[in-house]
Design a protein around this nucleic acid. Structure first.
Lengths: 264, 264
DNA sequence: CGACGCTTTGACACAACTCAACAACCGTGG
DNA sequence: CCACGGTTGTTGAGTTGTGTCAAAGCGTCG
């Protein structure tokens, strides 16, 4: 069984060990591998998406277009990731999904997915748990864009990416391949591509991280963790961004409580 | 049955009509109403939150603190809203949750919730659908903060709020009560309170919207919809922000595709 | 070789933040 | 009744982070 196939299983196993029957059924409901070229739109916002995609090889992204011509990337999907669960629940997709590189994916039809979940409640629980985890990442993303400086955002992004890639064996402690150019990074981080460039230069000059021809080198995990104030998704591999070190990059406003009675 | 109690049921009914047995059980698993003062923290980030909160009266907020002293509000909970489902799935909460006004809530214990979902799959489906809807809102929020100008964000925020409040009978077409001060708004919208003030002035001067002593008055729904580029959560009550009208407030960068082959 | 995609840099503009001060409002207590 | 402090809203002046525009450098590939 190829790595990328087992990636999803490994992930679900983290939640609760799967029986061989569950694994067999999960494999069985999946379509044959689909190979797509980079740029291929798998589904668009508003589409009545009745299927889930599982990435086996390559990178993809979930995003929303804004009418002014820009877009916001919500999440990058890497091998082992499952995209579109929420779209199935909502009957129509609230975001678009495209391949960033040439990729291989499998799909699961919504109906078969539903059936699978009825037959194997533990699989349902596992998928829900995985979806909850993705949502937690999206929230962290929200906080980053809303309340963190550009440099902190970028540092945070690469740390999270490194951790995710490590989980599926696509990164070592200090380096990984990353096919995202600065335009794409900008769209993900809510920055202009040019500013991404400046921030990357800053990180490079501080000796923290280098991005060169599609390869990310992490020179100073600790230092990055401090700038990013990164908290690992996995409790064990905590980077421990010491919360009191260094001058705050930027001080941000704290809200006082509203002083209103409830009269609803 | 008080309005606020029926709000959740109404919401779930939108997904699929509930039987009286389902309604009875849903009511039965809930705790007695809990009355809290404004500022009360219901749970904090990282807490092993084994319960779900349902707001009956008052306003609350989900948020994450950032170490620099700022925070990002993820969502406001209004009567009928259910908070903490994801926390139950993840075993620990990825955000904090506090009352913004004096409020009344009910809780559902995680264990009883699980049992309820096993007994009534349609209730489970309803809750999941509701959660998916909340997440769709959070994503829209993400896009707003990442890719929209301040004025567009604020306009969008109030339109969405108006729609949500209308659904539970707490707003009319043109006005509603809103206990959020400018500091809180800033924390939600990724802006400083002072800038919120300036943006509100802008909206007022354009004759679009007024906020005065806790009451929001919408003067020009159409105009707001255009600035916000708002798309209704409910397909029927579309505000139809005409996508081609007016000069773009701000033009934003579009990413080109990365030119990298997949070699994962 | 030229075309293309991507990165890098500089100069400049502007949106949003900070600091500081003041005004309006409200409940409390003298 | 008025003085008071606390909270919130308003405004101005100055700063800064980030976006825009423009141009050049540099691999890679056909």
């Amino acid at each position: 069984m190829p790595l990328s196939q087992s990636a999803l299983i490994t992930k679900l196993n983290t939640y609760a060990p799967l029986t061989s029957e569950e694994i067999a059924s999960l494999t069985e409901v999946q379509s044959k591998p689909i190979v797509v070229r980079r740029g291929k739109e798998l589904f668009h916002e508003g589409q009545h998406g009745q299927m889930v995609f599982i990435v086996q090889r390559g990178w993809a992204s979930s995003y929303k277009d804004v009418p002014d011509g820009g877009r916001q990337i919500i999440n990058f999907a890497i091998p082992g990731d499952c995209v579109g669960l929420r779209s199935v629940l909502l009957k129509e997709s609230d975001h678009a999904f495209s391949a960033l590189t040439d990729s291989t994916l499998r799909t699961i039809d919504a109906v078969r997915m539903t059936q699978l979940f009825e037959d194997f409640p533990r699989l349902r629980a596992g998928f829900l748990w995985s979806a909850a985890r993705d949502e937690a990442m999206a929230l962290e993303h929200l906080v980053g864009i809303g309340r963190r400086s550009a440099i902190s955002r970028v540092a945070h992004f690469f740390l999270e990416l490194a951790e995710r890639l490590t989980l599926v064996g696509l990164a070592t402690e200090t380096q990984f391949h990353c096919p995202l150019n600065q335009y794409v990074l900008g769209d993900a981080l809510g920055l202009s591509a040019i500013h991404v460039n400046r921030v990357l230069r800053g990180l490079r000059e501080r000796g923290l991280l280098t991005v060169k021809s599609g390869v990310v080198l992490i020179h100073d995990l600790q230092g990055l963790g401090e700038i990013a104030n990164y908290h690992s998704l996995n409790p064990r591999s905590q980077v421990s961004g010491s919360s009191q070190t260094g001058p705050p990059t930027q001080s941000l406003p704290t809200a006082r409580l509203p002083n209103t009675r409830s009269d609803n």
